[in-house]
């Protein structure tokens, strides 16, 4: 993740300012290859190492849940420049302040768990 520079706060800013193709290239390549792989897995009913067929659970469709949730995540992504994976990689780099972000993210997840029944899904 470091070498892909997807952990960079600067690259995230560039992505949202539409100045650099890099992030789109990374995500686009991953999705393009992922798409082919998923199609092949489905076509050949591939099995995982435990011998179970690999299944894809369709996500229950809803607009408010994904739109509101996604937007809130986007706000945080642009502020901290880190999504959940890169947060840990940045800690590995010695950016100790990311621990505060991780703690806050855990708290955010916890608050969601508490009030989720009151939110539109």
């Amino acid at each position: 993740m470091t070498k892909a520079e997807v952990i960079s706060w600067y690259r995230i800013q560039e992505m949202f300012l539409f100045e650099n193709f890099h992030m789109y290239g990374v995500i686009g390549t991953a999705v393009f290859l992922g798409l082919i792989s998923v199609q092949l897995i489905k076509r050949f009913k591939a099995k995982d190492i435990d011998g179970n067929e690999i299944k894809f659970e369709p996500k229950v469709f809803s607009i408010p849940r994904y739109l509101f949730g996604g937007t809130i995540f986007g706000l945080g992504w642009a502020m901290t420049g880190a999504c959940p994976g890169p947060m840990y990689t940045l800690v590995g780099h010695g950016y100790w302040s990311m621990l505060i972000v991780i703690a806050a993210a855990l708290f955010g997840t916890f608050v969601y768990g508490i009030i989720r029944k009151k939110l539109p899904h």
């Binding site: 849940r65 949730g69 809130i72 706000l75 945080g76 502020m79 302040s97 806050a104 969601y112 989720r116």
Partner: peptide, 28 residues
């Protein structure tokens, strides 16, 4: 950091996934 982190944690669970779960696994 605190508000940003909070948004990430709250939003990602509300949306049921983040960049890896939605943008990559989901779109694939």
């Amino acid at each position: 950091m605190v508000l940003g982190g909070f948004f990430v944690g709250f939003g990602t669970r509300y949306a049921g996934g983040c960049t890896s779960g939605h943008a990559i696994s989901g779109l694939s």
